[in-house]
């Protein structure tokens, strides 16, 4: 009957332990616990406080949407270098619409600013989707490889951001309360409205990646584009959707930056694409495509910014800012090494 094609080994306890260590999320949670303890001691007890955690989560909120965007793109086997400059451009255009278009300024604050903030979010989202569509055009129609296509867009969009803003921040109406952590029954939590919103978007993105046909095609395309096409799926159409999703999320990250700073500035997204890529690598996404989970990305981004903030909070020794950069670089290299070891372990 052909049922001889069977695998016979039953998993032993050792295998189970090994498997769980190969699971990126378990490793990342363990890393976070260790980092938390180390920084708590090194900071003389100020790291695990609401104030620091709120800052870590605020940074997490700035970058997680880009990391999620990058995850979808990288799983298809591509890369999107334009996400950082899309943050700059979308926040600048949002600021421009409010300041130059509607002639408003930062004197509008608190609840009165909410409608304008929502307008800024909408504008930033539209700008992001447009940049994504442009990337898809370059990749699908002009057949430019994603690295070069999005590198070109990255340059063009940061240039546009400078032209539109005149190189200066555009300060418009804002409600800073959106970024202030909640206080519930007198207890301050480390989570604000903006962070909570971003968290919800991340969960939805995770459900879409892991539970829907859209996510399945994303993996299929990165895993075997030929098989995907043979199964009757149009790669170009899916690539377009993925890059527009990436652009849209980068646009929302631009809105986040606008709310965080109360201004659209052409440097709001400076260097963010590199952190987003680093976060995806730490989170277990393979740059070869086909591999990655949103929970890993969420934890990977958290590890990255725990280290960023943690090193600043250290009191027992003075960590110079330059040494901080070196430590973050070592962390990223270590994450890649762990991935490679895991991969070899499977073979």
């Amino acid at each position: 009957m052909g049922n001889s094609i069977q695998d016979s080994q039953a998993p032993s306890l050792l295998d189970k332990v090994k498997t769980s260590f190969r699971n990126q999320s378990v490793l990342l949670v363990a890393t976070l616990v260790i980092l938390g303890v180390v920084f708590q001691i090194a900071s003389e007890g100020i790291f695990l406080t609401t104030g620091t955690l709120a800052t870590v989560l605020n940074d997490w909120g700035s970058y997680i949407l880009l990391a999620v965007a990058q995850t979808f793109v990288v799983i298809t086997g591509g890369i999107d270098l334009s996400v950082g400059s899309t943050v700059s451009l979308s926040s600048v255009v949002a600021g421009w619409v409010l300041v130059q278009g509607l002639h408003l300024d930062s004197s509008i604050s608190g609840d009165a600013a909410i409608p304008y903030v929502l307008l800024a979010v909408l504008v930033a989202l539209l700008v992001g989707l447009t940049v994504g569509a442009l990337n898809a055009f370059l990749i699908n129609i002009l057949k430019i490889v994603p690295f070069i296509a999005t590198l070109a867009t990255m340059g063009a969009m940061s240039g546009m951001a400078i032209i539109i803003s005149g190189g200066m921040p555009l300060q418009g109406p804002n409600d800073f309360n959106l970024g202030i952590p909640y206080t519930v029954f007198g207890v301050q939590l480390p989570i604000s409205t903006t962070v909570l919103t971003v968290l919800i978007i991340t969960v939805i993105a995770g459900l879409y990646l892991h539970k829907t046909r859209f996510g399945l095609y994303t993996y299929a395309l990165g895993s075997n584009p030929f098989a995907t096409r043979a199964a009757g799926i149009s790669p170009a159409r899916h690539i377009t959707k993925v890059y527009m999703l990436s652009g849209g999320l980068a646009g929302l990250a631009g809105a986040y930056a606008y709310i965080r700073l109360g201004a659209g500035s052409p440097s709001n997204g400076a260097g963010m694409e590199l952190y987003a890529i680093a976060a995806t690598v730490i989170g277990g996404v393979s740059l070869m495509g086909g591999v990655g989970r949103i929970i890993g990305i969420a934890l990977g981004t958290l590890v990255l910014f725990t280290v960023q903030s943690g090193l600043l909070m250290v009191k027992v020794v003075q960590v110079s800012p330059s040494l901080k950069q070196v430590i973050v670089a070592i962390l990223i290299a270590a994450a890649v090494a762990v991935q490679t070891l895991q991969k070899n372990g499977r073979k």
Binding site: Y219, A220, N224, F226, A227, G290
Partner: peptide
């Protein structure tokens, strides 16, 4: 495919990162 013609291509029929059932149902 939709007309009822299935093709198994040499060496490239499956997406290795997907599960068996995901491959069986890919596109359907």
């Amino acid at each position: 495919l939709e007309a009822g013609i299935e093709t198994l291509y040499q060496d490239s029929g499956l997406a290795p990162h997907l599960t068996v059932s995901q491959n069986v149902f890919l596109g359907r």
